[in-house]
Structure formats: structure tokens, C-alpha cells
């Protein structure tokens, strides 16, 4: 159970604002944090981790008080059992992949076995002896996630872990995140801008704008392909058609195989709805 109410002065493009968020997460919930840049998403994560100091409020995690403004209690980040994945991954360049994990797992009684298990779980076995500089973005991301898990945290905080990756890598890592979440059932907060990613991973989504909560609820259903009727305007060479969509927009598409209709005929088009 993570329970918090945090306030902190924000400097946004629209002038000074106050970040003010209160929420309780049941154990094992995966919460997505969404909203435009400058909304205070990263700030909220840093306040929960203890990397920045809140102005007021409290944070409690599993009966342990991490922060209590009125009582002046403050647990430094070192003593909060959490894993944090940074936007820039923040892997230690002087250590190999295995050393990064082993450094994080120091103090665990089964350190070596646990590191091996994490390497296997995140498919990093073949990269174990490499330095971070020689890894691709998606590989670095997996190391960062494994390293965050190495301390056996009670809470996992992910700051836009997938936004810098190309779509195929992102889809694969969403699966990795889902697997990791299923396996460890960690209470998790994930910053994401991608509705499809949120729909796929999160139990709830909290939307912030300029420090204020503008919505908490279930993730929107993932966008599904829709079928619309278009009117053929012209038959072009090389088996292509110019088609008018219901909204009036014109597109050029490949003709369905065996298409025999002429100008003015109606055809069914499958349209993938773009992601906001």
C-alpha cells in the first residue's frame, strides 16, 4: 500500500504553479502517470523517491513513513526500498552490465544467484560483460530495469522508460514490463504519453496538468482499427485508387486485389486510428 499527499512549488512555462497530488495505491497496482510536459509528472516521481524535498504532505509505504511534513520526518532515498528507472537510464559507465546489477544487489544474501536470475529474466545474459556505452537504447533500458529490481524494492518508479525507443523495441519492452509486473507484483508508477502503452500495462491512469490532477480512472480502451466507407474518385496507374473519406479528406490507396469497380464506387477501408 502506497499512500501519499504531496505538494511542491512548480516552475512551469505558464508561470509558478503548485503540484498537489493525493492518492492511495493498493499493493501490486500499476499506475500510469500521464499529462503534457511540465505537468509535474517527473517531479512527483522524484518526490516519492526522496530525490527532491516536498513543500508539505506525507508519503507512507506499507506502514513505513517516508515523509511527514508536519512531524518533520524524512527518509533519505537511500533508505526507501524502491527502484527508480531514469529517463536517461543512468547506468554506471565504469561497470559492465553484470557489475551494474551486482553493485545494486549488494547486501542481498543470494547476490550472485539473484543477479544471474535477473540477467536471464531480462535476456541480458549475452550482454553481461559489456559496458553500457556499447548497448542499444532498448538494451540499456532492460539493464536499467534489472538494476532497479536488484535491490528487491517494494515500489517501482519508471520515468518515461520507453519514450525514447523505436516502436518495435517499445512493444517488446512493454511485454517485458508486463512480465516483470506479473512476476513480482510490485506497486509501480509509470510515466507514459502513449495511450496504447497505458491501456496495455496500467490498472489506472492519473492525468496531471500544470500540477493539478485532471483525471484519475481506468485507462481508455486501446484504439482499434475502424472500417469506413470511401468513394473512389479516380483509378490511378499501377493499381492505385484515389479515395474520398467520409470527412471529405482524400487519400491514395492500393486497390484491393481483383478490384473492378470504376469511379464513384464505394469501397471499405480499414483505418488505423492514430495515437494521440
Amino acid at each position: 500500500m502506497l499512500d501519499f499527499h504531496l505538494t511542491k512549488a512548480l516552475h512551469t512555462a505558464a508561470g509558478p504553479r503548485t503540484l498537489d497530488v493525493a492518492l492511495a495505491l493498493p499493493p501490486g497496482e500499476l499506475l500510469a502517470l500521464s499529462g503534457p510536459s511540465g505537468a509535474g509528472k517527473t517531479t512527483l516521481l522524484r518526490l516519492l523517491a526522496g530525490l527532491d524535498r516536498p513543500d508539505a504532505g506525507f508519503v507512507r509505504c506499507e506502514e513505513q513513513t517516508w515523509y511527514d511534513g508536519p512531524r518533520r520526518q524524512w527518509l533519505p532515498p537511500q533508505r526507501r526500498p524502491l527502484g527508480f528507472v531514469f529517463q536517461d537510464y543512468a547506468l554506471f559507465p565504469n561497470m559492465t552490465v553484470r557489475e551494474n546489477l551486482a553493485f545494486a544487489a549488494e547486501g542481498q544474501s543470494d547476490k550472485n544467484q539473484w543477479v544471474n536470475e535477473l540477467l536471464e529474466l531480462l535476456e541480458l545474459g549475452e550482454l553481461a560483460a559489456r559496458r553500457p556505452a556499447l548497448l542499444s537504447g532498448g538494451q540499456q533500458q532492460r539493464v536499467a530495469l534489472a538494476r532497479a529490481l536488484a535491490r528487491r524494492p517494494r515500489l517501482l518508479l519508471l520515468d518515461e522508460p520507453l519514450s525514447a525507443l523505436d516502436l518495435p523495441t517499445r512493444l517488446r519492452l512493454q511485454q517485458v514490463l508486463a512480465d516483470v509486473h506479473r512476476r513480482f507484483a510490485l506497486t509501480t508508477i509509470l510515466i507514459s504519453h502513449d495511450p496504447a502503452e497505458i491501456a496495455r500495462l496500467a490498472h489506472r491512469v492519473l492525468t496531471l496538468d500544470l500540477g493539478r490532477v485532471v483525471g484519475v480512472g481506468l485507462p481508455a480502451a486501446p484504439p482499434t482499427p475502424a472500417t469506413v466507407a470511401g468513394r473512389v474518385l479516380a483509378v490511378l496507374p499501377a493499381g492505385r485508387l484515389r479515395v474520398q473519406l467520409p470527412g471529405g479528406a482524400e487519400v491514395e490507396v492500393a486497390a484491393p486485389s481483383g478490384y473492378a469497380g470504376g469511379v464513384g464506387a464505394e469501397i471499405a477501408l480499414t483505418v488505423a486510428v492514430g495515437e494521440g
Partner: peptide
């Protein structure tokens, strides 16, 4: 050095 290096070490419990 990126600030996140020291911060990452802090979230891993390092003094």
C-alpha cells in the same frame, strides 16, 4: 557527470 548517476546510486541505497 550527469546528476542522475549520483541519484541512481542513492535510489540503490548507496551512501
Amino acid at each position: 557527470l550527469p546528476r542522475s548517476l549520483a541519484e541512481a546510486a542513492a535510489t540503490l541505497g548507496k551512501s
